[in-house]
Structure formats: C-alpha cells, structure tokens
Design a protein around this nucleic acid. Structure first.
Lengths: 240, 240
DNA sequence: CGATGCTTTGAACACAATCAAGTTGCGTGG
DNA sequence: CCACGCAACTTGATTGTGTTCAAAGCATCG
C-alpha cells in the first residue's frame, strides 16, 4: 500500500538515471529545451512515491525527465481510476492549471526525476511557454478522447493490443526499443487503466501470446508481430 | 444520416432561441461576458448540422450560446465515439487549439447559436482571455477524467443515473429546471457516450423508473428522487 | 528461509450484448 | 385527412464475454 507521502530526495546513481532517460533521437525533448535553460528545480523520487496528491495546494507543474508515473483519480466512495501513465516529456499537474489545488494523485512507478516548473514562470513566461502549455493541454484532451474511443468500442484483447502498440510508439519516440517493452505497472494497474479486471488482462496477454503476436515474460513484452496486433485492433467487430 | 455539410444560416424565431438560452442565474455567462463585447460573429444552425468536421482547417473556436451539440471521434476503421455533449457556455474546437485542423466533428442536436471566436483574437487577446481558455482546457480534461472514472467503475444503471445527475446539474446552472430534463440526443447517442448498447440504455431507464427514481416519457425525464439516484451511483459495488 | 506482493489458472456465474420482432411517433405525400 | 414510410424506441429470448471467487505458483526481499 502507498500510504506514505514521501517527496524526499533520494540518492540515485547517475548511471541509473541515464538508462531511464536515454538520448532521444532529436536530443533534448522540446519541453526540456524550453525549460532546461530556466532555473527549474530538479527532484528525484524513488519508486511508489506520491509526487503530489489530490487536494494539495498546487504551486508548480512537473515535467517528467526520467522514470514513469501514473496519475490517479479517487472518488469519495472509494472508486479508483488511473487516468494515464506518464513518461519523459509529459507534464504533471496540467488538469489543475486553473485551480489552487491538484485534483489527482501523481505516483512514481520507479525511480525518476521531475523538473519543477513554478507557477510564476508560467504566468510571466514568454508566449512560447504559454503556447507549449496550451499544446500540452490540448494534447491531453486528444489522448483522453482516444482512450474513450478505445474503451467504448474495443473488446478486451483489442484494448490490451492497442495499449501495447501505443506504449511501443511512445517509447520509440523517446529512444527506447519499440520491440521490447518493459511494463512499469502491475497487471492490476493495467487493468484499471483499460477498464478491465486483473485476471482479464492476464488472460488477454496469454491469448495474444498464443496467437504469436507477442511474447510475455513477467513484465517484459516482446512484440513479435506488430502488423498482426494492428490488424487485431482495427478489424474491430465493434465488439463490446 | 448526416452527410450534408451545411453551415448556412437559418431563420430562427427569436422567441425560440430565447427559450433555448434562458436568463441564467448570474445573467451573462462568464465566457459570454468576456467575448460579448468583442466583434464575434454569431452563427445559427438547424438541427443535425455539422458545425465543423475532423480534418477541416481550423480558423476559429466556437462558444455555444444556445442549443446543444455533440462532439464525435471517428476512427479510420469506422468506430465512432461521442466525446461529449456541449451546451451554452461550452467551447467547441478546444482540443485542436495547437493544430491547424479540427480533430473531431461537432454536430448540432437542435437549433442553436454559436459565437465564432477567431484565432487572431485568442493570440493577441488580453491575458484574461488566455486564462479563460486555459481554464476551459483544464476543465475539459477533468470532465474527461471523470468520464473515465465513471465508465471504468460503474455498471450500466449507475452510468445512466450518473449521466442524468450530471446533466441535471449542468442544466440547473444554466437556469433550466433541474427536475425536468429534455434529452436532446437519441438513445443511441446516449449509449455511445456511456459505452453501452442502445437496448441497455433503454432497459436501464426502465429499471430506474421501476425503482421510482425517475419518470420517463420519450425524451422527457423527470427526476423523482435525486438522493436515490445519488445513492445508487455512490454505493457502488465497484461492479463491472 | 518464511513472508509478502504480484501473477497465473480454473470453474461458475452474471451482466450486458446480440438477435429478432414489434411498437410508437413523426414527417411526407397522396 | 389518412396512408405511408422511416427512424427511434421498446421488449423478449438467448448468448457470450468478462467478472467473480478460489486456490495455487512464483518471484523478491527482509
């Protein structure tokens, strides 16, 4: 269980962080180029730490530089929902940009580093910063809408396949391998995100492996037949 | 079928539009106050018209002043998804604010009026306009996330109940009755939005009526027991 | 080691989807 | 005005996918 609010720094070996933030094809990410020169504070986190929680006062935005995070919604009656997995180049806290407090939890899935972008910098910043933020906001909306489309129209196996393809694409754009994925989240997290049950995700992965589309070994996924996955998703019987 | 792109003006009786945009409790909506003084073009639409389509060049944002709209995503392989129902005070086109083209379709559900906000106005406008846009973007993200939570954690009846409660709240804030709802969308649209099938929505509405929570007469819904609806939603067995 | 958290697998069940008629309401045209 | 056609809606019977419940397997780490 995650019950400790621990935002303390931790001594991470530089080599480890390097591995988590390999040089991307284009060098620095656009967002990093924009903020790297500014006086942003860098914060390192261990795995399974809250970066922030819903309700806390929001005095900054966070740019993920290394590691992986999940953002979660928690309703009053205890229902929980992962709204997204965030990685290098993603901004955390965007959804509360017009509010004094965060409205979701942000939790690290492994060791990571974030750059803290104070609000003052956003308000007074040059217009290209404002534009970048607007783009990030609009991009999040488009991402959410595609999630809606996926969950609303695809069956379990297709959702899992679509997730793997999307993750593969995102990782590739960050300079990681697109064939060989290392899932940072548990099966339970994955199920929650895809609006399925843990057991269903397990069985879907097993079925995809049975079809020869992927190879599963614990948290490691090897994509054997990308086109086959794509076909599985698109030739949707519009099931479910 | 909606196959005609018709953005032409139509002669609507002023009285009809008045009825669709009653005086809200606070008078003018915040958004309207902000843009009402500026030289925005007003456009009237009949029912079932495309305001814009995915792929079209985006030269404006639209503020809904009267009527109801839906925004839809359409995947290449033909899957369709309604991403939201939009009403007075909502902005259309937000999700493409950083792109040259729209990424969704916006369709009127009945006669309506939108105010066209050209991009130039957004870029050069005063900072309070920028802030309002940011707030609208962040608000859309929060709305989408709550949709995810709902669809990911609630069973069919609960989703329908949650939808009715949300609609009731939104309509009330616009000066409409919160007890007596007139659905502007078909059962099919509703089902699509809630990630259910048409028949399931019909049966859910029938069940809610059977429980004495609502009264259904075609597109008219009377909320008989708001608390009961709320309880149905919150005391979620975390089903599904 | 034993403890814990995560994952896998099996069997039974339930909810929503599917398939198939009908019905209702509404606009159109005879 | 009624007859027609069509789209939206309702209802029933059946099926199937994903859930639920239960138990066991397997890593990691104190």
């Amino acid at each position: 269980m995650l019950d400790a609010l621990d935002s303390s720094f931790s001594a991470l070996e530089p080599a480890l962080l390097e591995e988590l933030a390999p040089p991307v094809p284009a060098g620095l990410l656009p967002m990093e180029a924009r903020f790297g020169s500014l006086p942003v504070q860098r914060r390192r986190l261990n795995a399974r730490r809250y970066l922030f929680r819903a309700g806390q006062p929001r005095h900054a935005l966070y740019l993920v530089h290394a590691g992986f995070f999940k953002t979660c919604l928690l309703s009053e009656d205890g229902r929980e929902k992962i709204t997204g997995f965030r990685m290098r180049g993603d901004l955390l806290g965007l959804e509360a940009l017009d509010l004094p407090n965060y409205t979701c939890d942000a939790i690290s899935l492994d060791v990571g580093e974030v750059w803290e972008i104070p609000c003052s910098l956003l308000r007074a910043g040059p217009s290209d910063v404002t534009e970048a933020i607007t783009a990030a906001l609009a991009g999040e909306i488009r991402r959410d809408w595609h999630w809606m489309l996926m969950v609303g129209t695809l069956a379990a196996d297709q959702r899992v396949a679509a997730f793997l393809l999307d993750l593969s694409t995102r990782l590739e754009s960050l300079g990681f391998s697109s064939r060989h994925l290392l899932l940072r989240m548990t099966r339970g997290d994955l199920a929650n995100y895809l609006a399925l049950k843990l057991e269903t995700v397990v069985r879907s992965l097993a079925r995809l492996q049975g079809m020869g589309l992927i190879r599963v070994d614990r948290r490691e996924i090897r994509i054997e037949d990308r086109c086959g996955l794509q076909r599985l998703v698109t030739r949707a019987h519009a099931v479910h």
